[in-house]
């Protein structure tokens, strides 16, 4: 198997996640795009680990997973707190800090 197929999968996931972050306006869809970008990094780490024949890339996947879980927990807590205040999760309604 050539490594390019893994790079292609990773690039596709990165492009889809970036598209979701730029195009969508609700916070949950932004988080979905963020998770996709983290997963594209994971695919690349596993691919390089298999390309070089050692396990260090796969170990980094665990650290990425832990950071993704922490990010999801704290981010969702912030979103729930804002939703309680504004009754909306559309990013265009979050303008309290805008000058």
């Amino acid at each position: 198997m050539t490594p390019f197929s893994l790079f292609l999968l990773s690039g596709l996931l990165l492009a889809i996640g970036l598209f979701g972050i730029v195009a969508r306006r609700n916070v949950i869809s932004l988080f979905f795009g963020l998770e996709l970008i983290l997963n594209s990094a994971n695919v690349l780490l596993v691919g390089f680990s298999k390309l070089h024949g050692n396990y260090y890339g796969e170990l980094f996947v665990f650290f990425v997973l832990a950071v993704a879980a922490a990010e999801a927990a704290v981010g969702l807590a912030i979103v729930v707190a804002i939703y309680r205040m504004k009754r909306s999760i559309n990013t265009e309604d979050f303008r309290t800090l805008r000058w």
Binding site: M1, T2, P3, F4, G11, L14, A15, L18, A23, G53
Partner: peptide
């Protein structure tokens, strides 16, 4: 803008990635 940015980024990344040779050992 999202489609343009993401497709541009993907093409740039894959152009560089296609230079990496080798074989994936499963």
């Amino acid at each position: 803008a999202g489609a343009f940015l993401s497709i541009l980024l993907m093409i740039l990344l894959l152009l560089e990635a296609s230079k990496i040779a080798g074989k994936v050992k499963p």
